[in-house]
Simulated scan of single mutants.
Amino acid sequence: MILAGLAACATPFKADVSRYQTQLPAPQGESYYVVADDPALAGGLEFAQYADLVEAQMARLGYAQAGSADDASLLVRFDYGVDNGRERVRTTGFHDPFYSPWYGYRSPFGYRSRLGYYRPRYYGSRWGYGFYDPWFGGPEVRSYTVYTSGIDMKIDRAATGERLFEGKAQAVSTSNRLQYLVPNLVEAMFTDFPGNSGETLRISIAPEKTTVRRID
């Protein structure tokens, strides 16, 4: 019996990023401070680690970091989380007329679109609901867990409380490790920041590097 550590070839999952803004001010003369939108996270070491990521992105845009919330002209409210996951079942190794390696499983019944006609309904996707394991052949049914993670970010005018920006980034993946998910979601949030108000983008996020053990 031989155990060999092998790097897993995973497919990137994708983040859906929705952003809304009024008139976000230019960086010149503005300062910011990142605070926890959830009071339960305030003062925590984990929150501070992820707040550093947001601060680095704000600094990259040219905004100056204030020494405290009282000294800032902009308050950046930040929150993050991942759900408890849900089980998925996938069968591989034989021809299934309702399985597509690109989209996952589809229903023969389809759904009605806004334009009034039917399209196939797909269950799962190549980035979030499954993966291909090359080490096992033949028909196989396997169960695995997928998780939905997300971050919320709001920017308010500190003096008046006026909301200037709201953004959400969510993703589905087979990882529930916030240490991996949050940095990628923050990067997705600040891609082409602040974006077009009301537009939702799908942004690819690098797969997590994992180890597969093969038993011979």
Rank of each mutant, 00 (worst) to 15 (best):
Y105L: 08
G104Q: 08
Y99P: 03
V54S: 10
P97G: 11
A72M: 09
T91C: 09
Q57S: 09
V82D: 00
R60A: 11
F78L: 02
Q65A: 11
A64C: 05
A59P: 02
G62A: 05
H95V: 11
D71N: 07
Q65F: 00
Q57D: 12
A69F: 01
V89I: 15
V82F: 00
P108H: 01
R88K: 12
V76K: 02
F78V: 02
S100C: 10
P108C: 04
D70T: 14
G104H: 08
E87N: 15
G67Q: 06
A56K: 15
V54R: 03
A59W: 02
L53M: 10
N84D: 14
D70V: 09
Q57R: 12
A69V: 07
P97M: 13
G85P: 04
S100D: 14
R90P: 04
M58S: 07
Y99F: 15
L75H: 02
L75F: 00
A72V: 11
D96F: 08
G104A: 05
Y103R: 15
F98A: 01
G67R: 10
Q65L: 06
R106Q: 08
A59F: 05
Q57F: 05
R77E: 10
D70L: 14
S73N: 10
G93P: 11
P97T: 09
L74K: 01
G67T: 07
A69Q: 11
A72N: 14
S68P: 03
R77V: 10
P108M: 02
L53T: 04
V54L: 13
